[in-house]
Amino acid sequence: MGFEIPKMNYTGSIKEITLGKGDKAVTVGGESSYPFYLFEGNMPRKPRIAMEVYDYEPTDWPEAAVEPFKDVLGNPAAWAKKNVEVYGAEMIALQLRSIDPNGMNRSTEEAVKVTKIVVDAVDVPVIVWGVANPERDTEVLKAIAEQCAGENLIIGPVEEKDYKQIGAATIAYKHIAIASSPIDVNLAKQLNILLGNLGVPENQMIVNPTTGALGYGLEYSYSVIERIRMAALTQEDDKLQYPIICNLGFETWKTKEAKLPQADAPTLGDAKKRGILIECVTAMSLLLAGADILILRHPDSVKLINSMIAKMTAAE
């Protein structure tokens, strides 16, 4: 008798969720096996990448991260357009950092305005990411949900402290809620249950288990995502059968190692490559854990990760 490779018996699958609208809408999810285990199940939708746009002109980024966007920093519409037209972005992630009450503290009106400008500038799905300050996010994200009704935006983070208000806004104005929990599988499930009880439809939710960068807790995020997928696929846990999003560009490019200039850290190698590789190693690890959507910063990272995804999902 020949040797037979043992196969995992999957009893569940990930829900398919459509982000954005029109021709450029993106559908993620649908997996019926562990990530890239095409010999055991299907991965009908490839993982997708969103490129970052910031709502202000960043001044503390390393040169490598500034260079591709030199001509558009501080102009979110042009930045979003460049990401789509020049770098081929399939989605935009608008990072609303300027609304931070402990930072620039820009007004809700300004945040709504910049979001509308970005949404109008591109035809790809737009992810709108707040500052994880429940009070501020509630006000801003609710206003954005209302003002951009029907755009099927992807809005978050929606956390335990603000899920009722933001969740209700995503229901009322038909957007996708990003259920966000602090690197803990039980809390991730808990929030999904709460959002479900609130009435967020199954096809309007994705999960953000919170991402640590390489060297800054990546392994914890990896384990949590892995556990979520195990429960979803092998224990039929329908509270966890949602696509997973990882906001990692922001995390990786703020690390000390990504920021150190060449002169200050000659032993760490070429500063540009270093930053990109920190982003890519983090991204690839999260894909292997089970991420469906990655938010990345550098166009070279996007290119590299997209080519990896293409190769790993290619039919033999």
Binding site: N186, L187, K189, Q190, N197, R227, Q235, D237, K239
Partner: peptide, 12 residues
């Protein structure tokens, strides 16, 4: 360990 725990485990 048959079902993943959450604080709402009795509600689902």
């Amino acid at each position: 360990g048959e079902i993943l725990f959450s604080n709402a485990w009795l509600e689902v």
